[in-house]
Design a protein around this nucleic acid. Sequence first.
DNA 1: TACTTAATTTAGACTAATCTAAAAAATAAT
DNA 2: ATTATTTTTTAGATTAGTCTAAATTAAGTA
Lengths: 221, 221
Amino acid sequence: MLSLVEENYLKTIYHLSDGGGQQVSTNAIADAIKTKPASVSDMIRKLDRKGVISYTKYQGVNVTSEGISAALKVIRKHRLWEVFLVQHLKFNWDEVHEVAEQLEHIKSPLLIERLDEFLGHPKVDPHGDPIPDSQGVIKARPQIKLGDLSPKSEGLIMAVNDSGSSFLQHLDKIGAYLGARILVVDKEEFDSSLRVKIDDGEILFISKEVASNILVEELTS
Amino acid sequence: MLSLVEENYLKTIYHLSDGGGQQVSTNAIADAIKTKPASVSDMIRKLDRKGVISYTKYQGVNVTSEGISAALKVIRKHRLWEVFLVQHLKFNWDEVHEVAEQLEHIKSPLLIERLDEFLGHPKVDPHGDPIPDSQGVIKARPQIKLGDLSPKSEGLIMAVNDSGSSFLQHLDKIGAYLGARILVVDKEEFDSSLRVKIDDGEILFISKEVASNILVEELTS
DNA sequence: TACTTAATTTAGACTAATCTAAAAAATAAT
DNA sequence: ATTATTTTTTAGATTAGTCTAAATTAAGTA
């Protein structure tokens, strides 16, 4: 059983490791948690002993499969509470985080399953982040080409098909980045070009070629 | 600002003091909180320094008006969460306590006001206990004479109109006490006597005179 | 009133989590 | 490759909350 503080460390490490993939440094954890590296050293030795991360001195840490499973439980709770706060208690999406930070540590499996049911088994939180199911499985987000998004619908930029620097520089120029919200204003029939807004900015033109190289996740508003 | 542990002490002391009225002994607190008297001694010195109780050595403690106000805030949160768990998450009334014990410590004034609104400003929790309003005011529980309770309905014995010892001895004899649950089985038309059950015990006869001197709070099942 | 018992407090130790300052290891730079 | 810099770890102290054992005060009883 992890303490509240240990849960926060684990969750942070999981996020920094990008879902368990990357190695994470002591300083990165200290930065993220707003604590001192010395405190992190102590804590990661403890988390290693508990089996949720693996740690060798001066080498940073990796999250174990047990750790991933534990982190996903916390993340599931956090995101379900966010849905509750926004959909039922009229919170704005920018007001939910700190409250969900507290609610995510409530210990009651029954509570969280009932809450999930009450909310209608939502798949994403108010920021569009996916909610792991009770088994800790994250439904792969369906990625489609920006060009296939229907007019008036919105998507999140998830990946690109062309990693060439000229293409990436172009994206940079128009203000597109991984995670940006993109709205398809309309579509030209004759050349399949798009008019889009990125993050509520100005209307931009995007060619068919560019549009087919941007992968988005459609937002179900 | 009180810590979670301090909040639990204060809430317990408030309850033991019967709403701030009685003095509370160190051992009573230790019993209620399942800790040792030595720990209680330490904690009550701290709570005294913080101004929520007043404490003189070997004399037990009293809750200050500041303490009452703080305790009522916690109790309000606890009871609102209980209503939520029962009315919206299908919890049984006997499953809610431990979860509400955790939820009551979530710090967010906005959250609790929105929850209150969402629940429709309930006046009592699933056990019939009153919910303090946002100002900490507890609506006086409506007391009616036992004789005015309609057959088949239940009440809690809240007070008596006759404090004479013979009357109190009679109550003692039939097993009635402050806080007892009393069910009116039926009522005789011709002499207004009642047949009642106290705490699911045997059926007892109660005269009109006795019934008019017992004040109950009707339980809205 | 003196003695016994019960309630309460103090003293000292322990765990969890944090910090500062200093030491050690790894990385970068000349 | 040797120095300089950054990162990380250790050592030792601190705070909150708890405990056991011993000391003190209050209360009960002969």
